[in-house]
Nucleic acid binder design. Structure first.
Length: 440
DNA sequence: TCTGGGGTCCTAGGACCC
DNA sequence: TCTGGGGTCCTAGGACCC
């Protein structure tokens, strides 16, 4: 906790819904609900007009429809949200070189790490700074509003931004943190969710003041080392967590809830392959590779299990990921059907040692296999950035791996025209712009 | 028509090694 | 033969956040 209110938390109001209202004037002033619009969808964001009817984030869309049938239900346009977010984050970076985005619509800003190193941070000018910032954001984004909290710590800044939401500001004067925090419900503290709140309630702890009367040992017994200790400190607004500019990704995953449960193993395997390709593409886009593959399964009764397995070396290869994930599915009883399947990778490294690829990259092609008219098997020289992996091309299937030497198999009658065939990766629907040479 | 999708962090137990 | 810790890695699950 600092002696000055120099940490800002900014939160865009009803972000997804507000972007939709901005881009479609007919939605302004009307309830707008963005989220899953399928039978198993939930609400991501409800505009304030919809909140009046009791619609909330994470509510089932079916219930939202019942409460607010006249609302506009939208599936979401993430490219538009990302772009609006970028504009806002760029503006925040003008305020301070140290900003910490928490999501598309939220960030901490360390004002003391700020823009004017000569004069330093001036607490007296915070209100002015925030007014200007909020006006700029509304202008830059074409009408979005933000709520802002400023305080001496992350904890209090985040709490402060809630106070006058939407389109409001709250500054917590240094020295008053405990007075402000004390009467609040424990759930006001970020990290205290329903499960923790219920455990605390059974001890008679409802407010932060109640929490403060518990010993650290007691909280550790109840909640474990990390949560117990941290909550004991947060209860007295003791928080010195720094604003951290960028954190590296720890995992990449894709998951999907099906409209109807699926119990067909082949169908699930096909879905796994598609998901592995998506994960692979995202890894490559970010220059990452990972070692631990996780398969997530949610059964018909909502029981959720994960199975994971760790490779000897990091990979970003779709086929390696798919093979591993399929193997994890093999041991599972899916006879009653899955409602969700997910594929993820963790244990990320930011580079790939291509020599190692040969080891953890089981080649589906038997090199010694006899060629016939329909099949040819020949080595390919691969260039960095190129990628072919188990993709349908024209009337053939192309198999391959990431960097280094790979073998490509044309399972049907598509054969390269000549001894050396140059092609572009986008010919193979694998992403544009790269050129490779196929040598025979 | 109960209960999204993308993450992070923490805990706990077992294996394995020194 | 018995009795140790400590550290790290791996796996599984759970709470929480937006």
């Amino acid at each position: 906790m600092r002696s000055t209110a120099s940490i800002m938390h900014l939160d865009l109001d009803a972000f997804f819904a507000s972007v939709e209202q901005r881009d479609k004037p007919s939605l302004r002033g009307r309830p707008v609900i963005v989220g899953g619009i399928g039978p198993r969808g939930v609400v991501a964001t409800a505009s304030y007009e919809a909140r009046v009817h009791g619609v909330r984030s994470a509510m089932r869309t079916a219930e939202a429809r019942a409460r607010c049938p006249h609302a506009a239900f939208l599936g979401g346009r993430f490219d538009a949200y990302r772009e609006a977010s970028r504009l806002v984050m760029d503006r925040l970076r003008q305020e301070s070189e140290l900003i910490e985005p928490l999501s598309l619509d939220e960030a901490f800003v360390d004002l003391a790490a700020g823009a004017s190193p000569t004069t330093g941070f001036d607490p007296g000018r915070v209100e002015h700074l925030v007014d200007r910032l909020r006006a700029d954001i509304t202008e830059i984004t074409g009408g979005l509003t933000a709520s802002v909290g400023v305080a001496s710590s992350k904890l209090m800044a985040k709490i402060a931004s809630e106070v006058n939401k939407p389109d409001g500001v709250y500054v917590i004067a240094p020295g008053t943190e405990v007075d402000v925090l004390g009467p609040m419900q424990v759930t006001a503290i970020p990290g205290v969710g329903p499960a923790t709140a219920e455990r605390l309630r059974r001890m008679g702890v409802l407010t932060v003041d109640d929490l403060r009367r518990q010993s650290e040992d007691e909280l550790v017994r109840l909640l474990g080392q990390a949560s117990g200790r941290s909550l004991h400190r947060l209860a007295v607004a003791d928080d010195d967590r720094p604003v951290v500019a960028s954190r590296e990704a720890k995992s990449v995953s894709v998951e999907d809830t099906f409209e109807q449960d699926i119990s067909d193993r082949l169908q699930l395997e096909t879905i796994i392959e598609r998901m592995a390709r998506t994960v692979s593409a995202r890894l490559r886009k970010n220059g990452l590779s990972g070692r631990t593959v996780t398969l997530k399964m949610r059964h018909h009764d909502f029981e959720t299990h994960t199975r994971s397995s760790t490779l000897a070396h990091p990979t970003d290869n779709a086929r390696v990921l798919a093979d591993k994930a399929r193997g994890l599915l093999a041991g599972e009883d899916i006879s009653n059907g899955l409602r969700l399947l997910g594929v993820g990778v963790s244990g990320l490294a930011d580079w790939v040692q291509d020599d190692l690829f040969a080891d953890d990259d089981p080649d589906p092609i038997d090199d010694g296999e006899a060629d016939d008219e329909a099949t040819s098997s020949r080595p390919v020289r691969w260039y960095p950035g190129m990628d072919v992996h188990h993709d349908h091309h024209g009337d053939g299937w192309v198999w391959g791996s990431g960097l280094g030497r790979v073998t490509v198999r044309f399972e049907t009658r598509w054969t390269p025209p000549g001894p050396v065939h140059t092609f572009r990766a986008d010919d193979l629907a694998l992403g544009a712009g790269h050129t490779g040479t196929l040598q025979s």
